[in-house]
Write a protein that binds this DNA or RNA. Structure first.
Lengths: 267, 267
DNA sequence: AAGTGGTCTAGACCACTTT
DNA sequence: AAGTGGTCTAGACCACTTC
């Protein structure tokens, strides 16, 4: 229960920000202290990363964490405010604070940016084309931060909307994490793929980085998406990360944008 | 100086959230009250919108605003925290809080998502192809929330990076706002176009919504970007908004993504 | 009634910038 | 030295959920 405990250093907080490494410090140390609430945030993040609190579960109340870490509720609150802004946790008034999960409509659309044009119906279907294990090519290994030749799981699938094949995804996953992932398990599983990763493999995606280009459909893509060779497609290259900025998925999506578009809000 | 003043209603705050419309209210009114800090945020936003504080300028200190609005500093602070998170203002420790402006490297990249691939040099150049006034077609009018046939300024330009034509932009701007905008003024102006809009026309963009598709270059695009007809291009349709969610720019960009990519962070 | 997150206040001290 | 934003505390009450 008490596996998360602050360093002795953390406890030195006086009435104000004495942990911020001011001039009062005895030995002229240096490594740039951070505010107390940042330290608390880090401790909570470590609890998430270690699996002490799993996706969907309730974390301790602000008061509980405050007394555990020997800080005021306001300081815990500020830490959780930031975690909430980063979508790592979800607050629910009257109930508590929960670890974010992909098993919610809310989280789905953060990572599915392709939306139907106005008036276009949208019934999604998934079809797994192929799943196999292979040795990571150099480029894949580099992006997944593993060694070239390490085992990776390769997945190819087609997503259709209202019967129209629209997305061709190729995925590469670190074999060390996704042991026992088969086409059957992918097909059996209802719900978002990131939900399966979370529940079956204990790997929770928290952010992703995408690079988008326009390309022409090659023969393979044309056949699977049932369009002519040369059809312009969005090429979306995504690297997904779990806690600690560890890459856990490389995905190359080809999106048909005749009746759909990639939406993005700039602010 | 005091043009922003709270409603009498706003002043009824007791020691805690009595402005949130609790059961203590005399007449059983209704229209769902908002927290004090949200009301303060709205008042500050109105100051930005009205031009009381212009882009780049200093707004009053937290203490000053607190005493003006008759609330505690903490409440003003929370309001400004949100405005800062929305990039409407920028805080600078020791100096004060400033109205956000597009005359900063910081703000540029929020709205320019096309980045060079690794190792590709990046010296931008602009070339205005054409500027003219015309009557808004129905679709343009709808997106700009003006009447069909109203005057709009049409701009076509090509952006090159290190001598390679890469972006063809078509812009439509409401004629009522952008009076006297000519190709000459666009060419004279050094710096980002949104900076010119802000300084010369008093219109500050705060957010934009984009829809992205893959298309083939038509003859016009092919000629201006010096590629073959049929070259796949990113089609980026953007609507930009100023304060109060008022649309002030419609932009259709065609991006050549042979040596560049549209980058997006999902979180 | 008790517990949780949400809002608000008042006061303290720190770090940074300018005078 | 004075002013600004940044951090931290302690205590109060509200709104919501559960028991």
């Amino acid at each position: 229960m008490n596996s998360i405990t602050p360093n002795a250093q953390t406890l030195s907080a006086g009435p104000a920000g004495s942990a911020t490494g001011g001039t009062s410090s005895a030995v002229g140390a240096s490594p740039t202290f951070s505010p107390l609430y940042q330290q608390i945030k880090l401790l909570i993040t470590q609890g998430l990363q270690s699996g002490e609190w799993k996706p969907g579960e309730l974390i301790p109340s602000e008061m509980e964490l405050a007394s555990r870490f020997k800080v005021s509720q306001g300081t815990v609150r500020k830490a959780i405010d930031e975690l909430s802004a980063e979508n790592l946790v979800v607050r629910r008034q009257g109930k508590g604070t929960f670890v974010a999960t992909h098993h919610e409509a809310r989280a789905q659309f953060r990572f599915l940016r392709l939306a139907p044009d106005e008036g276009v119906p949208h019934y999604p279907e998934n079809k797994i084309i192929e799943v196999r294990r292979l040795r990571a090519p150099a480029e894949v290994a580099r992006l997944l931060d593993i060694k070239s030749g390490d085992s990776v799981v390769f997945i190819r699938r087609v997503q259709s909307f209202s019967g129209v094949p629209t997305i061709l995804d190729d995925l590469w996953l670190p074999g060390a994490i996704f042991k026992g992932l088969t086409a059957e398990r992918l097909n059996e599983y209802k719900g978002p793929m990131y939900g399966l990763f979370e529940t079956e493999f204990g790997t929770h995606m928290i952010r992703a980085s995408e690079q988008i280009r326009a390309v022409c459909a090659d023969e393979v893509a044309a056949q699977l998406l049932q369009v002519d060779v040369g059809m312009p497609l969005l090429n979306v290259e995504r690297v997904s990360f779990t806690y600690g900025d560890k890459p856990v998925e490389l995905r190359r999506g080809l999106y048909l944008t005749l009746q759909h578009h990639y939406r993005n809000e700039l602010s």
